[in-house]
Design a protein around this nucleic acid. Structure first.
Lengths: 136, 136
DNA sequence: CCTTGACCTTCCCATCATGGGAAGGCCCAT
DNA sequence: ATGGGCCTTCCCATGATGGGAAGGTCAAGG
């Protein structure tokens, strides 16, 4: 099958499939005489694996490691689990960070009248940050 | 004061101060005869405002709008609040998305032995995504 | 047989916010 | 006057993705 079909079947854009090939994440497929890439079902399988990893927030480098483990029939599940747990920690830390920002803003917004008047604790807070927070 | 001191006082790197100037986020400061940028306390004030907005996850474009509102003495606090609330929704949506990824992974990892054996539901799940999720 | 349209190829550019580093100029204290 | 620590501009890199141009290919239908 051509790249278009592989893309449709895997949910990975043709653009990204070529990119993944260029960075060595996936192996270059066969080519027709006219240089068209030719994919097999197995390649689609791999692409779906990558798609799933990306959807779960793994970076391409992490995905590369996961792919290596996937292909290594002698892998230890502990290695996979360690990778996943580390990633879970990253995800939760980032989620907490975003939520903390939201909470801070929500607190400021709660005291903002939100009417025609110009006074607003949000702007006041932004403007009133301490002068030397890093040094003090 | 020179850019180094403005940077230290505002917590914004010299690199970023120049960049913010280049994209018109902040106004170009005066220059010495030798082309050194010269900042006043007010400029540091503005930089800290930008820093705070960035720390709370506002994009530079959103920060630009906030700055405009800040400088507009006739602003309506409702406009500020609307901007903040929209941003809060974005932050919370992103936080929830990350947390959902973490939850999914945690669920998969819970069933992974994490020992020397190769079997791992994480990899199995990644490999077993439906073939035509978009079309089916 | 030729045209048309849908596909494919490579290549370059843009995003967003930031950092690294080179090459060169400036300023001040010793 | 020299050295070190500033400053200047300019170019490049990141991570993952999309947009689009210019040109080649393939299959179907007239």
């Amino acid at each position: 099958m051509n790249i278009g079909e592989a893309s449709a079947r895997s949910g990975v854009s043709a653009k990204m499939i070529r990119y993944y090939e260029s960075i060595g994440l996936i192996t270059p497929p066969a080519r027709t005489a006219a240089q068209y890439r030719v994919y097999a079902d197995d390649d689609v399988h791999t692409l779906r694996f990558v798609r799933r990893a990306r959807d779960l927030g793994f970076s391409l480098e992490e995905t590369r490691e996961l792919l290596a483990l996937w292909r290594d029939r002698g892998r230890a599940s502990a290695d996979v689990k360690a990778l996943a747990m580390a990633h879970i920690r990253d995800l939760e830390a980032k989620a907490a960070e975003l939520q903390a920002m939201a909470d801070t803003l929500r607190h400021l917004a709660a005291h903002c009248h939100g009417d025609h008047r110009p006074d607003c604790p949000i702007l006041s807070d932004f403007a009133a940050q301490p002068l030397l927070p890093a040094k003090a």
